[in-house]
Design a protein around this nucleic acid. Sequence first.
DNA 1: GTGGTCTAGACCACA
DNA 2: GTGGTCTAGACCACC
Lengths: 116, 116, 116, 116
Amino acid sequence: MEFNTNIPIYSQVVEMILKQIITGELKPDDKLESVRNLSEQCKVNMNTIQKAYTELERLGIIYVQRGVGNFVVNDKSKINQLCIDVVRGRVSNFMQEMQSFNFSKEDIILLIKESE
Amino acid sequence: MEFNTNIPIYSQVVEMILKQIITGELKPDDKLESVRNLSEQCKVNMNTIQKAYTELERLGIIYVQRGVGNFVVNDKSKINQLCIDVVRGRVSNFMQEMQSFNFSKEDIILLIKESE
Amino acid sequence: MEFNTNIPIYSQVVEMILKQIITGELKPDDKLESVRNLSEQCKVNMNTIQKAYTELERLGIIYVQRGVGNFVVNDKSKINQLCIDVVRGRVSNFMQEMQSFNFSKEDIILLIKESE
Amino acid sequence: MEFNTNIPIYSQVVEMILKQIITGELKPDDKLESVRNLSEQCKVNMNTIQKAYTELERLGIIYVQRGVGNFVVNDKSKINQLCIDVVRGRVSNFMQEMQSFNFSKEDIILLIKESE
DNA sequence: GTGGTCTAGACCACA
DNA sequence: GTGGTCTAGACCACC
């Protein structure tokens, strides 16, 4: 695991897990890595992972069974909603920013088509 | 002037001026607002503006004449390069992120088309 | 710690640390003094040290782990390059200046030999 | 005339004239450019040139005849002394700095020999 | 504990 | 008036 400086590690961990859930890599009721394991894998302080998990719980996207582990919530509509929210949010932010540079929707689509 | 919390004010100022240069609102050799003026307009401390200007100078996009003021660099290729770098950078980041959610280029274009 | 007037304190701090890295007093991955500690040792404001450290990071010669500390970059080629750049730069500046006084390379070497 | 930023223009002007005197381009009792002329040639504020001339007078290396102009002092020993002071000063500063990087006198001579 | 940001206010050199 | 530096003190996020 490599972490970007400047962005808090704990929120990078949140992102990582969100992606795994959205892409289906983590399914409903799947058990997440234990705080301890993940902190070792990522070579990161346990508190940092804990904070990430707490954040995910706050978002209602995982639930905790004390002494057992952290699990992905078993609620497909919730997960779908999450997926939609996240993606629409990103797209909307991106569009807003590009438009502040005076790019129209068509310009942006062109840029994307020719990207890579 | 309203500033977003969470993002440092000085970097929001950098962004703001970058945009003004890219959109042509600020032209080569134009004088920027003095540190003091801008700090009053933005209701922000002088040092914060100073930091933003220093960052812009570091980027090679403005130059300083001590005792005179800060000026947009007179080098169209530099500015064009800046414009391209910034825009391509944003597009590329966005694409990378969306692809990590398993969206193809076509998916993204669809999402954009139906946005707003 | 004594500082020269006329030269900004923060850049004297940058110089000081560069020297420690070049002479090997600070080694790759070594932790620098914390901002607070160094500011107390130097009897200088925290912000001044902060500015120096930011400059060193910009030079790519140290890296920061927020909440942890500042560390010398672990990249010997980078450090070697730094060493070469700094030393060659100084020598070249010096030579240029002396030659503008109409001293030849041989003159300068003589001057140095008889110096002290 | 091109001026380096960061170094005050007035002291760059002082340097320039010192060099002209040391290299014999300006001889004893020669008249310097008028403040007005030089300020136009250099595209610099008159005050800036004035400050440079004042500094040179303070150094005892030029003298002023009000209403007539500024002249190089007619005192060869003075000028020789100046030359020696300036050059020895530069060499000594340079040596001191290089030694703080752990270079011996021999190292430095080698570096100079292989320079350019 | 660490670094990062910000403020208010001051002083200086420069043009 | 302009930019540049510095201080003292504060608050925050992070580990």
